[in-house]
Design a protein around this nucleic acid. Structure first.
Lengths: 191, 191
DNA sequence: ATCGTCCCATACGTCAGCGTATCGCGGCGC
DNA sequence: GCGCCGCGATACGCTGACGTATGGGACGAT
C-alpha cells in the first residue's frame, strides 16, 4: 500500500537504510521507530526484534556513515597526488552522499557522540589532503592551512547542495585549480 | 529556582532568545514550549499569550536570524573593498554568531521555509562579495566562482566552529590572502 | 508431521509535548 | 477604590512515540 517494495522479510540493514533517508529528509527527530515502520509496511514489533532500542539504531546509522565516508578516501595504490586531487573533485560533484553527510553534520550539532565522530573524520581528511600537498611540494604550515581550507569548503559545499542550491560545478574545481597553481615548491605563504 | 534571572515579566523577545539557545544546543526539536517555559521559570500559559502556537515562535526565530545576518553585511560607507574583505575575516573569527548560523543551517535541512531563507541569504552574500571582487578588478565569471567559494567556506567554517573544532585563525585568512593575490586583472580562469 | 527458530503483529501502559479554557493576580488609569 | 487589562498559573484532553509482553505464522531441519 505504501511506496516500499514487497520484500517480505527485513534485516537490520533495511532499518538502517530507512533511518538514513528519514534522517536526510527530517532530521534526527524524524528517525522514529513507528513512522519508519509505517513507511516500511511493518510494525515496530519488527524493529524491536532487530534492535535493542532507538539509540541502537541511531548509533548503527552513525557507524554506517563513518564506514562509508572512510572507504571513500581509500587510496587505490598507484595513483599520483594529482589523480587523487581530481578524485576529490569528482567525489564532491557526485552529490549522492552530500545529503547524508549534511544531515549527519546537522545532527552532530546536538549530539556529542556524533560530533566526536565528525571531528575525527574532519581531522583525518585534513591530514590526508595535507599529505597530498606535501607530495606536490607545499611547505609545512601553509599546506596545513590549505588542507583545512579544502575540508571546510567541502563541508560547506555539501551543506548547500543539500539545501537544493544548484551547485555550480566550478566552486570546488576553482579551489582545486587555485591550489594547484599556488601550491608549488618555493612559494612561501608570506608576501 | 532555575538558572534564569528574576525578571518578573516577559515579552516575546525573551521567548525568542530562549528559543535561540535551545535551537543551538538541541536542534529544532528542542525548541519545545514546555521545556522552554521550565527553563525560564514560567509556564506555557505565558507562551500562548505572546504567540499563537509553536510554529509562530519558530518563524519569529527565523526572522530574528535573518535580521541579524543581514545587518552584519551593512556597508559602512567610506570603506574600500579591501577594508570590507578584512571585515569579513574578522566577522568570521568572532564566532559569536557561528553557533546560531550553524544551527539554522542544520534546521534548514528539514524545513523548506528555513531552507528558502538560507538560500536567499547565501545568494545575497555571494552577490555582495562578487561586488567586492569587481572593485578589485577580477573578471566576471571568475569573480562569481571565487565569491561563491568564499560563501561556501564561510558556511563550512561556521559548522566546524559550532562542532567545537578549534578553528585555526588561518583558514579564512588564508583564503582571503589567496584571493587577494590571485584576483587581479588579467588573470583568466583557464590555464 | 512436528518442532524450533526467526520474524512480525497486536495490545498495552507510560510519558512528553501541544493546544485550549478558565481562573487569578498585580498594577494602572481615573 | 474600582474596574480593567496585561500577563501568567492551573487543569484538562489529545496525540504521537517509546518500550514491553505475548502470541502467531512461515519455513527449514530432522
Amino acid at each position: 500500500m505504501s511506496a516500499a517494495a514487497e520484500k517480505k522479510r527485513l534485516g537490520p540493514e533495511d532499518w538502517v537504510a530507512a533511518a538514513r533517508t528519514a534522517l536526510i529528509e527530517g532530521g534526527p527527530s524524524a528517525v522514529a521507530v513507528e513512522p519508519l515502520a509505517k513507511r516500511m509496511g511493518v510494525t515496530k514489533g519488527s524493529f524491536y526484534w532487530h534492535f535493542k532500542d532507538r539509540p541502537a539504531l541511531l548509533s548503527a546509522l552513525l557507524s554506517e556513515w563513518e564506514r562509508r565516508t572512510t572507504e571513500m578516501f581509500a587510496q587505490s595504490p598507484g595513483e599520483t597526488a594529482l589523480d587523487r586531487f581530481a578524485k576529490l573533485g569528482d567525489l564532491q560533484a557526485s552529490g549522492a552522499e552530500s545529503a547524508f553527510e549534511a544531515a549527519i553534520r546537522g545532527w552532530a550539532l546536538s549530539d556529542d557522540q556524533v560530533s566526536e565522530v565528525v571531528r575525527a573524520t574532519d581531522a583525518r581528511r585534513a591530514q590526508y589532503i595535507e599529505g597530498l600537498f606535501h607530495e606536490i611540494g607545499a611547505t609545512g604550515e601553509y599546506a596545513t592551512a590549505l588542507a583545512r581550507l579544502m575540508v571546510v569548503a567541502a563541508a560547506g559545499e555539501m551543506q548547500m547542495a543539500a539545501l537544493g542550491e544548484p551547485t555550480p560545478p566550478s566552486t570546488i574545481a576553482t579551489l582545486v585549480r587555485l591550489m594547484a597553481r599556488f601550491a608549488k615548491p618555493g612559494l612561501s605563504p608570506q608576501r
